[in-house]
């Protein structure tokens, strides 16, 4: 049924709707970030084994989780976009990929900075870190493919196909890496596994996860709006929008 809807009206409506939603996401992301980071850094008790270095968990785990969350978003959007041929969904794929890549990079970097005092090396071929590295490669591949096409409609579709191929592959990759890891260095205890966390430690972590998720939503909407503007830049509603913003700037100046 979507196909019969007028595509341009839909883009304009989606632009307006996402604009309305954006402040709400930011309203969740910013306070939770401030509360979570202060609680995690200053008030949560130090880990009895890892001391204060464990405080990296408050960005490592949320970033790693939301890197996966971003990929799930992309996979769902890609599926919708390809099956029902909705261009807006394909734009969502393109809009989400860079954020997912940045989150994955954060997860990797914080993992390394945590690993250095714990394992004595910046990089250990730990199963989770290795999976994250491969996830980063997959993200970069999708972004590179999207940027390589000059026609952004085709680019969105190609990126969607690659996203779906990746979503079938990622569980296999994760599974194979975990198995490979146990075979090659079975003795290493994963430092990120916290069997039972004290509530004082867990609550700020949950707050940070909410914050990262809300920020992901905010950025996806922002970039999604960018994608719409770029592709519809010749439509009257975008021109009206531009004229409005430039005239308000002139009045102020």
């Amino acid at each position: 049924m979507w196909k019969w809807l007028h595509p341009y009206a839909k883009a304009e409506k989606s632009y307006a709707l996402s604009g309305k939603l954006m402040p709400w996401f930011l309203a969740v992301a910013l306070p939770t970030f401030v509360v979570g980071i202060i609680w995690g850094l200053a008030f949560a008790p130090a880990d009895y084994q890892q001391g204060d270095s464990f405080r990296i968990i408050y960005i490592h785990v949320p970033a790693a989780m939301m890197a996966m969350g971003a990929y799930s978003t992309m996979a769902i959007a890609a599926f919708i976009g390809l099956v029902w041929q909705i261009r807006l969904a394909e734009m969502t794929v393109a809009a989400t990929a860079p954020i997912g890549a940045v989150y994955t990079f954060i997860a990797l970097f914080t993992g390394a900075a945590w690993g250095k005092p714990m394992w004595g090396a910046w990089w250990v071929w730990d199963a989770r870190l290795t999976s994250e590295l491969i996830l980063l490669f997959v993200y970069l591949g999708i972004i590179a493919l999207y940027n390589a096409f000059s026609d952004k409609v085709l680019a969105g579709r190609a990126a969607s196909i690659l996203t779906l191929v990746g979503v079938i592959n990622l569980p296999i990759i994760h599974f194979s890496v975990v198995w490979w890891n146990t075979l090659h260095q079975g003795a290493t205890i994963t430092k990120f596994d916290q069997p039972s966390m004290a509530t004082d430690m867990l609550v700020p972590l949950l707050i940070m996860i909410v914050s990262f998720a809300a920020f992901l939503g905010f950025m996806v909407l922002y970039r999604f709006r960018n994608e719409i503007l770029q592709r519809e830049s010749h439509r009257p509603w975008v021109i009206a929008l531009v004229q409005q913003s430039s005239s308000s700037v002139n009045k102020r100046g």
Partner: peptide
């Protein structure tokens, strides 16, 4: 390590 991770 902590401030490096948070900073980056």
């Amino acid at each position: 390590y902590v401030w490096l991770a948070y900073g980056v």
